[in-house]
Design a binder for these strands. Structure first.
Length: 429
RNA sequence: GGAGAGGUGGCCGAGCGGCUUAAGGCAACGGUUUGCUAAACCGUCGUAGGGGCUCUACCUCUACCGGGGGUUCGAAUCCCCCCCUCUCCGCCA
């Protein structure tokens, strides 16, 4: 959420941000109207409470013989005042819900303000490619999609995954199952070597946690909920990691916090029917190594650049060609002020596909979760960043495609050999 | 799952309808003293939202004692519901 004071003081900035995002700038004016009414009520309510507090104190003094007066008259007056107060309080509560309620208040429908360096544009067509790395491989034979390669090896069985759970689930067997483990071990090893603290969080989160992260209530239909429980399967480790210090005031010396975590991720993929139905690109359960930083506001954009580099390093280590794209205002996520996507090359689709998304959420998430830090007596909100480092399943799919050979076997990148117990290729048994 | 005991400021801990404006202590910060350190002494010392104003200051009000509701002129204190922690029992990877 944005700072209400920022919206009051610089409404034009927020209106422009909404317009750039193809959102409704009128939200600002609706919010300001509610805010004004709320504050007027606040003044009257506080005045009445003050009067009541005084009178109650007087009644107490009279009863203990420290003052003179008619208790009955005062009590009757305060009863009437109490009725009036109750009416005003109920009114204010209604306005408060419209203004600030996480489940639908106007403030919570206003997205983060894009950074000045974000390209302005209506949708993904306005995204800007920042750089490319690696050489796109050429094949002297007809390339196969990753699922064809995996099934050809006898190590990927999507039909039986469907029997076990349903469509959009994955079953890997033998060396391909081990490849999954090898990949996330490699990722965690590299990230921890570069200053990230490894974290193993719960894969289930409660409503408060998901609300603070912005997944609830807006994206409820993207989540798997546990029946009979107020719990959800996490859609990403970003959810628990950004909530670890929720509601706390940190010491400035604790910043920056850099964390990495491997978790399964669960997404309903509601609304994605028909998209990426083939293969394991878009599934209900996938593994991901996540990067999260909680940093001082002054350094957050530098931290974003280094986070992207940290994610890129994985692809470089694996020798997978990719490009980095800066998202435009129209494509930016709700929480993000700036986002880079990393897209890896998929030969069978003849295009780059997203394998990581790294965002600076500035103070937007921290404010929502009331994560703060104290510096020179001042209390401020830190900036939070999150990025995939990387999506393991998509990484595995990219290896199957980019390293496939004509005979159906797949070479393994050298960096993985130690993680595969010396195995240098995948070959049908 | 059953029985009991608890949740009060950064921490410890008193308070159990009005002398609380949440005592006292520890820690922290500023100062005095000191050759240095320590000690002692003095002061400051929660968060949030309003209002005033001569607007980085200052004055002032309100809310918050796990969360939510209720009783009352008045609730940390009484009542109801929920959450969490601890101890014991049961079950269990």
């Amino acid at each position: 959420m944005l700072d209400l004071k920022v919206i009051r003081n610089t409404p034009d900035v927020v209106r422009k941000a909404l317009a750039d995002r193809q959102d409704d700038p009128g939200k600002v004016d609706r919010l300001l109207a509610l805010d004004s009414e709320f504050r007027q009520l606040q003044v009257r309510i506080d005045g009445l409470r003050e009067e009541r507090n005084r009178a109650s104190k007087t009644i107490g003094a009279i009863k203990t013989g420290k003052a003179e007066g008619d208790v009955a008259v005062l009590q009757e007056d305060m009863r009437k005042l109490g009725d009036e107060l109750k009416t005003l309080e109920e009114r204010q509560k209604e306005i408060e819900l419209e203004r600030m309620d996480p489940a639908g208040g106007v403030l919570f429908t206003i997205p983060n303000i894009p950074h000045e360096t974000v390209p302005v544009g209506p949708d993904e067509s306005a995204n800007v490619e920042v750089r490319r790395w690696g050489t796109v491989p050429t094949f002297s034979f007809g390339v196969h999609s990753h699922d064809e390669v995996g099934e050809g090896l006898g190590m990927l069985d999507l039909a039986r995954a469907t029997k076990l759970a349903g469509a959009r689930f994955v079953l890997q067997i033998g060396p391909l199952a081990r490849l999954e483990r090898a990949l996330y071990n490699l990722m965690l090893d590299l990230h921890t070597q570069h200053g990230y603290t490894e974290v193993m969080p719960p894969a289930i989160a409660n409503e408060e946690t998901l609300t603070a992260n912005g997944n609830l209530p807006k994206f409820k239909d993207q989540l798997f909920k546990l029946e009979e429980w107020p719990y959800y399967l996490i859609p990403t480790a970003e959810v628990p990691l950004t909530n670890i210090r929720r509601g706390e005031i940190l010491d400035a010396a604790e910043l920056p916090m850099r964390m990495t975590a491997f978790t399964p991720c669960f997404r309903s993929e509601a609304g994605a029917a028909g998209r990426d139905t083939k293969g394991i690109i878009r599934v209900h359960q996938f593994d991901k190594v996540e990067l999260v930083k909680v940093v001082h506001p002054d350094s957050s954009y530098d931290e974003l650049e280094s986070m992207v580099n940290d994610a890129e390093r994985i692809l470089q280590t694996l020798g997978l060609p990719y490009r980095v794209v800066a998202l435009s205002t129209g494509d930016l996520g709700f929480n993000a002020a700036k986002t880079y996507d990393i897209e890896v090359w998929f030969p069978s689709q003849n295009k780059y596909r997203e394998i990581s998304s790294c965002s600076n959420c500035t103070d937007f998430q921290a404010r929502r979760g009331q994560t703060r830090f104290r510096e020179d007596g001042q209390i401020r909100f830190p900036h939070t960043l999150n990025g995939s480092g990387l999506a393991v399943g998509r990484c595995l799919a990219a290896i199957l495609e980019n390293y496939q050979r004509e005979d159906g076997s797949v070479a393994l990148p050298e960096a993985l050999h130690p993680y595969m117990g010396g195995l240098t290729e995948l070959r049908r048994a």
